[in-house]
Amino acid sequence: MIPHVRRVTALCALTAALAACGSTRTAQAPRPAPSATSAAPSPAPPRAPTVAPGPGGLTPVFAHGPRTRGKTVALTFDADMTADQGPRAAAGERFDNPPLIATLRRLRVPATVFMTGRWAEEYPDQARSIGRDPGFEVANHSYSHYAFTDDCYGLPTVPRERMRSDVERAYAAFRKAGVPDPKPYFRFPGGCYDRAALRELAAAGVTAVQWDVVSGDAFATDADAVARQVLEGVRPGSVVVLHCTRSAAPVTERAVRTIVPGLRREGFRFVKVSELIGAANGQR
């Protein structure tokens, strides 16, 4: 859950070294030419845009899109579930929110869902449905939803040497659930990161995605207050952070029913994070 923004200034960069392979290679027989009846392979999905790294070897961080390229806004939803919450789910606590996803579909609002690997394991059918819906894109919110810094709203902490593997484990959980094209975007649990965390994730090749509008939906009980906070905070290119967990964000779906028409009346167009990053890269 993200009760407020934690701002950390960091150089956003990435350096990578490729190790050379040995020079000895085993000869292989040539592959037979495909027959005329062979099915053509499915085309690979287009590569998602990422933020260009700079000097320093740190993972790049993206907080919002261009302010001068039209009134676009990205609604993002964190599908939170920590690695140790299995017993709570087994006892009936709901960390999913099917009514919210249904409302986004009904209103035809594209969105980016930052999903934990543990959430995908608990709700594989929903993860697969979201991941295969062209109206959504799935991004990484870690496997465990443990913090990547100390003192992050009481979350347990991922050891530094396991940070990259925690992110990669989430991608493995998405693939196992049937998500075909998870994006190379990562949101730190709690929004908490520091220079060390950015350095540890550099080799994972992800862009860290933060936000510039906090919805305040975590543990909120007043949907109108959540909607008002979003409507007052959005600017062109904004990234709004909301949640996709019924137990910890019970009024989000109701708030969305106010947020969406309100922003549309102001002339905003809803996009996914990938479109905002593409616009920042000069892509239309």
Rank of each mutant, 00 (worst) to 15 (best):
V167S: 02
R169W: 03
Y153V: 10
Y146H: 14
K183H: 06
A208M: 10
D166A: 01
R175W: 15
C192Q: 12
E168D: 11
S215R: 04
L201V: 02
R160M: 09
S144A: 08
A202L: 12
G135S: 00
S144L: 06
V214K: 08
K183C: 04
F148N: 07
V209E: 07
P182A: 05
G191Y: 03
P182S: 02
A197F: 15
L201C: 02
F148G: 05
T149A: 05
P180I: 03
Y185F: 10
F186Q: 00
A203Q: 05
Q210P: 10
A173K: 14
G178Q: 13
S165H: 13
W211Q: 04
D151V: 05
E200Y: 02
D194G: 04
H141N: 08
G178S: 12
H145P: 13
Y146A: 13
D181V: 14
T207P: 10
A196Y: 09
K183P: 05
D150R: 13
S215G: 02
A172W: 08
D212Y: 09
Y171L: 14
M163L: 07
E200N: 01
Y171A: 13
A172N: 10
S144I: 04
D181A: 15
C192Y: 09
T157S: 09
D181P: 11
V158I: 05
K183Y: 08
A208T: 11
E161S: 13
S165G: 11
G205N: 05
D194H: 08
A147F: 00
V209K: 14
G135Q: 00
H141Y: 05
G190C: 10
R175H: 15
S142A: 14
P156K: 03
F174W: 06
Y153I: 11
R187I: 13
R169E: 01
C192I: 09
G190V: 10
G178D: 11
V158T: 03
V138N: 09
R187D: 11
G205V: 03
A147K: 03
V167T: 06
R175G: 13
N140S: 01
Y146Q: 13
K183A: 07
D181Q: 14
G154P: 06
E200H: 04
R199L: 06
V206L: 11
T207I: 09
D166M: 02
R164L: 08
E137G: 06
Q210I: 11
R169V: 01
Y171E: 12
R199M: 05
C152I: 02
T157K: 13
Y185P: 06
A172L: 06
F148R: 08
V138F: 09
Y146F: 14
Q210A: 14
A170P: 06
R162Q: 12
P189K: 10
F186G: 00
R160F: 07
W211A: 04
R187Y: 14
F186S: 00
V138Q: 11
C152T: 03
A196N: 08
A203T: 04
Y146W: 14
R160K: 13
D150M: 10
Y146K: 12
Y193W: 15
A202I: 12
D166N: 04
A197H: 15
